[in-house]
């Protein structure tokens, strides 16, 4: 026993060091799965409040840019509105959208999307998993797992929400793949390689699929996003000899460096879908 205490006191520094490092590594490995990171996250009240105070100051410098983007979006939405007059464009609008795949049973015709506006109060593009903090949380209807879009395209997914703040894992993230669709309906997925915020990659597109430079890529129903939200445009394509696939490089349509406002998409049927998929996964095991 005495020897043990001597040993502890002799190597106390090393033991403390190793213990702290193990705590860190446990935290990191919890985060590296998509579910993790609910212990330490910028959605907590203190950091959220601090980012909000900072944003109150910086907010005014970006007003001109924001005005422009809102005008563009308004113009685009007005053209769309002229096709379907029944949609109300108030602030938090509910849109009943007819689903693309009509089935003969006529049970579910539309998905219910509820768009919630939110203000970005913190943003990053330089790390390998980029997070965005917004000023809206569970108190106003933002929950974990919702998709987030902006006027020009897809942004990311809510991974954590406190009462008044939520943090979003953007599609500029190495651990999040997003299901995507080319203009002609070919499915694939979008990945980010972790360095350039203006380059996304679409892998595993068969070589016989004809892709032109400048083609647009959309989200699909398979993901947490509503379908047909823009992701990016193809600017380069590489043919891979080894597996007969082609690799597409995309320019995202969203400028992640100056995000100001985003829309959180509340899909009324998503929970049911997720529940069903989880239960079928469980029964398979």
């Amino acid at each position: 026993m005495r020897n043990f205490i001597l040993f502890i006191s002799r190597f106390f520094n090393l033991i403390l060091f190793l213990a702290l490092e193990i705590v860190c590594i446990v935290l990191i490995s919890r985060t590296n799965s998509l579910q993790g990171n609910d212990i330490v996250s910028s959605a907590n009240a203190v950091s959220g409040l601090m980012y909000k105070k900072q944003n109150d100051v910086v907010y005014y410098f970006a007003l001109r840019r924001m005005n422009d983007s809102l005008l563009n979006e308004n113009a685009r939405l007005r053209t769309q509105l002229s096709f379907r007059n029944s949609v109300d464009t108030l602030r938090d609008t509910t849109v009943r959208k007819v689903l693309g795949n009509p089935d003969s049973s006529h049970i579910i015709h539309y998905a219910d999307y509820h768009y919630l506006t939110a203000h970005v109060i913190n943003n990053s593009v330089s790390s390998s998993n980029n997070y965005i903090t917004i000023n809206r949380g569970t108190a106003t209807g933002v929950y974990k797992g919702m998709g987030v879009i902006t006027g020009t395209g897809a942004v990311g997914k809510v991974v954590n929400a406190s009462a008044h703040y939520a943090s979003i894992l953007s599609i500029l993230s190495m651990k999040q793949k997003v299901s995507a669709r080319l203009k002609d309906g070919t499915y694939g997925y979008i990945e980010w390689e972790g360095d350039r915020p203006d380059v996304l990659m679409m892998k595993d597109v068969a070589q016989q699929v004809r892709v032109k430079l400048g083609d647009t890529v959309f989200t699909t129903d398979y993901s947490f996003f509503p379908s047909d939200i823009l992701i990016g445009t193809v600017y380069r394509k590489d043919a891979l000899k080894k597996n007969n696939m082609q690799l597409l490089y995309l320019r995202p349509t969203v400028n992640f460096r100056n995000l100001q406002y985003v829309y959180v998409v509340d899909n009324k049927l998503a929970m049911e879908k997720q529940h069903l998929e989880d239960s079928s996964l469980k029964s398979k095991q």
Binding site: T31, G36, V40, S41, N44, S124, Y131
Partner: peptide
């Protein structure tokens, strides 16, 4: 880490 969402890094 808390502010940058990188638990433990």
């Amino acid at each position: 880490d808390t502010f940058m969402n990188t638990a433990g890094l």
